[in-house]
Design a protein around this nucleic acid. Structure first.
Ligand SMILES: [Zn+2]
Length: 380
DNA sequence: GACCTTTGACCGTGG
DNA sequence: TCCACGGTCAAAGGT
């Protein structure tokens, strides 16, 4: 039989997207304030991985949101007229906790955690430190893992990132061994060990007949999803989960209302509780303002942020007052910040743990960062 | 039997 | 042209 064209890149529907539908805990060493994330990518947009950032103009536009937590580029039809290939960068940071958070978590129960001693906290990540695409890369875990191949250990990629190694890794058991919970059915069609990376990369196709959507999933050794790249748009509605809890549909089970409202949702698993984070950063429109909320699944605390002017284009920082204390779960607050770069539009939301006992400045408990930027050509 | 994952081989692309 | 690499195919086996 004649095979379909192997290269589906010509499919106009395919638009690369990096997304990560799980909440994350940035480390002190890996955490980079939003302006630094911007500055890191700003001078070298060509430095992105070629498979996710082609040298084509990107669009700064609202996007549709898969209600699962993976932001799907799709119906920016109102705005997308001047571009060829829109790319959305949704930057994850791996699931890592600071040492202080680690001890906190350790006190809470049987969290699956490994850790090493923390290095002195870097002052900041200098903008000329490295132009490695930290925006796109998952973090590596340095000497925690022994590279079977010494040459791999010396590879540029690992060396560049090992310097700022996180030291603790939190496993989210709900994510292990699953492609991700985005509501669609996927069939795995390949796996590769990416050169210079410890992470295996898995390739999935949407199982729906004639649906061209693919996704590439990079995992960490412990099975956590480090990065997801979606290609294409589904030409069918999301299949209804047959029954609850059976096969990967437990994502976002904390609140069905968020998905009904068209919010993306992800959760940060803790022992005996989950921090459910809902947001529509990537899909906000003037009619649907940027919203964000994070609540513990047991309802103990919550924090919300809403931006009623999606067209804001200059730096804005807003902090919500910390949630009430008293039930043993960390208090947190939301910090929202926008890009001030003219050709990079982005929103960064961090959930910061509120420390009250004079501890050092906390790192975000979780962060969500969406960057949309003009492509290299547009920058000239 | 349907559908999935695994895995080695194959192919296209780019340096 | 050669080679490394990423992405895909497809057979085999598992659930
Ligand atoms: Zn599909």
């Amino acid at each position: 039989m004649s095979q379909p064209p192997r290269d589906m890149e010509t499919n106009a529907a395919e638009r690369p997207l990096i997304a990560k539908p799980v909440a994350s805990r940035p480390t002190s060493s890996s955490f980079r304030p939003f302006p630094e994330l911007l500055s890191a990518i700003r001078p070298n947009t060509n430095g992105f991985k070629p498979d996710v950032c082609r040298p084509s103009p990107l669009v700064v536009a609202p996007q549709t949101a898969d209600t699962s937590g993976a932001v799907i580029y799709g119906a920016a039809k109102d705005v997308v007229r001047f571009e060829t290939k829109p790319i959305t960068v949704y930057k994850p940071v791996a699931k890592v906790v600071s040492k202080s958070t680690l001890s906190l978590l350790a006190n809470m129960g049987n969290l699956c955690v490994t850790h090493q001693d923390l290095p002195p906290k870097p002052e900041t990540c200098g903008r000329n430190q490295t132009l490695e695409p930290t925006i796109l890369r998952p973090q590596t875990f340095g000497s925690k893992f022994h590279h079977p191949n010494p040459s791999l250990e010396n590879s540029k990629q690992s060396k560049a990132v090992d310097e700022a190694e996180p030291k603790a890794l939190v496993t989210s058991p709900a994510n292990i061994g699953r492609p991700s919970y985005d509501g669609y059915k996927w069939r795995k069609y390949g796996q590769k060990q990416a050169k210079g990376s410890e992470y295996p990369k898995s390739y999935y196709k949407c199982s729906h007949p004639n649906c061209p959507v693919k996704k590439m999933v990079e995992r960490l050794f412990d099975g956590q999803i480090a990065e997801i790249v979606y290609k294409g748009e589904h030409n069918h509605p999301k299949p209804q989960p047959s029954n609850r809890g059976s096969s990967g549909q437990q994502h976002g089970s904390g609140s069905g209302s968020a998905q009904q409202e068209g919010l993306d949702e992800c959760a940060l698993a803790e022992p005996n509780n989950r921090l459910v984070i809902s947001y529509n950063v990537g899909s906000a429109t003037p009619d649907n303002p940027c919203r964000f909320s994070a609540v513990w699944e047991d309802g103990s605390k919550g924090v919300e942020a809403e931006d009623d002017d999606e067209r804001r284009n200059k730096r804005r920082r807003s902090e919500n007052p910390p949630a009430e204390a008293g039930d043993g779960w960390p208090e947190f607050r939301a910090v929202v910040q926008d890009s001030a770069e003219p050709d990079i539009e982005g929103t960064w939301i961090a959930v910061e743990e509120v420390r009250t006992e004079g501890r050092e400045a906390q790192q975000p408990l979780a962060e969500i960062c969406m960057l949309q930027m003009q492509g290299p050509e547009a920058l000239r």
